[in-house]
Design a protein around this nucleic acid. Sequence first.
DNA 1: CTATAACTCTCAA
DNA 2: CTAACGTTGAGAGTTATAG
Length: 428
Amino acid sequence: MTIFALVDCNNFYASCEKLFNPTLKDRPVVVLSNNDGCVVARSAEVKALGIAMGVPWFKIQQEAKRYGIVAFSSNYALYADMSNRVVEILSTFSPNIEVYSIDESFLDLSGFERVGYQAYGAEMRQRIADWLGLAVCVGIGPTKTLAKLANHCAKKRLAGAEGVCDFTTMTPGELLTLFERIEAGEIWGVGRKISAKLEAMGILTVRQLHDADAETLRKRFSVVLERTVRELRGVSCIDLEEVVPDNQQIMSSRSFGSLVYDLPKLEEAVSSYIARAAEKLRAQDALAGAVHVYIRTNIFKPEAPQYQPAMTVPLPEASADTRVLTRWALRVLRRIYRPGFGYHKAGITLLEIVPRGNQQLSLFVPTMVEASRNDTLMATLDAINGRYGRGALRLAAEGVTKTWQMRRGNLSPQYTTDWEGVARVAAI
DNA sequence: CTATAACTCTCAA
DNA sequence: CTAACGTTGAGAGTTATAG
């Protein structure tokens, strides 16, 4: 039988920020979402102050000032790099690993039972602390859902010890007693809506969910929740996914730093988003068959005039050429744009993605020579941007000043991925 | 009517 | 100074539409 471990970094983004600035050691730190919008990560000190996850920053800014909370804009370059280092270390503990998110991985621990899972988890924890200075918690169980739950117990110190919780050494009785103390909403896959519906049925705790009739749940909810319950009972229904499947759609969207009224700025934004998405598309060696574009006014200000148009256009022939995709996206944008509104956000999605070479050719294909020249051009574009940084070479349509870009007022240096940032580490 | 497409809802980090 | 509320992706289920 497979035994899973779920390793999750504690307060990941906030911890990364603290790592490179020792003066922050015992201070409350938050990291904000894009556009400095909402709180998406909180250090232990902030959680202790009762600051909620996901709260809009501007709503608590005064309070935060009183408490001396230090806020950072999201620095994804830094977090991604630290994340890769964590994965590298974890990979030495199991040949089978699923990188589930930027701060979480599932490991297949089959074959390591001799060591003792608890001890093995403690070793992972220690290694990551020693080599990176990051704290992680480890949950261990016979299904992914149980490993997730064990991790929760480790974090909340409900069971296990020293940040490691191993369900495999607990008796069924001990587990059920533990489950009585945990709300059903903590379970992986049970979100706000399903929690509320379960509650209406009298299912409040993990224990009650564990005991519920799977068939009934399937009828009242879905096959997904049925799987979840079976997993809670120790029947593995969700496999480790070691290879990330290619994306079926690629989207890029951003809120603007301030309201945008005119078309030219929206065109720059849409062009920039297409460029980003097309890069991803080519990275998985695929072509897109359709492009979706939307723009929207601020939905959080219902008193302002609202307009949220969107439109999808099928391409005559699937493409991964930034120039082609941009032309279609801009054509759509001009169709849906109406003057007089203050736009707050724009976004694009590439759809009907197919592997290159699998595509349906149009009747009016360019000559082979022309097509291959276009491919070479895009490959060169990607190579240059790979070498000199994203956006080093781009279409003029993206604009130069980009006055619409998101706010990022409290960005820390890229300590590990940029020479300028590395110098800042040395300076500390 | 059926098969498929399109859309909606929910969840996750 | 003021106003200010994230992004990306998947899967299941439901509804609309084409033939």
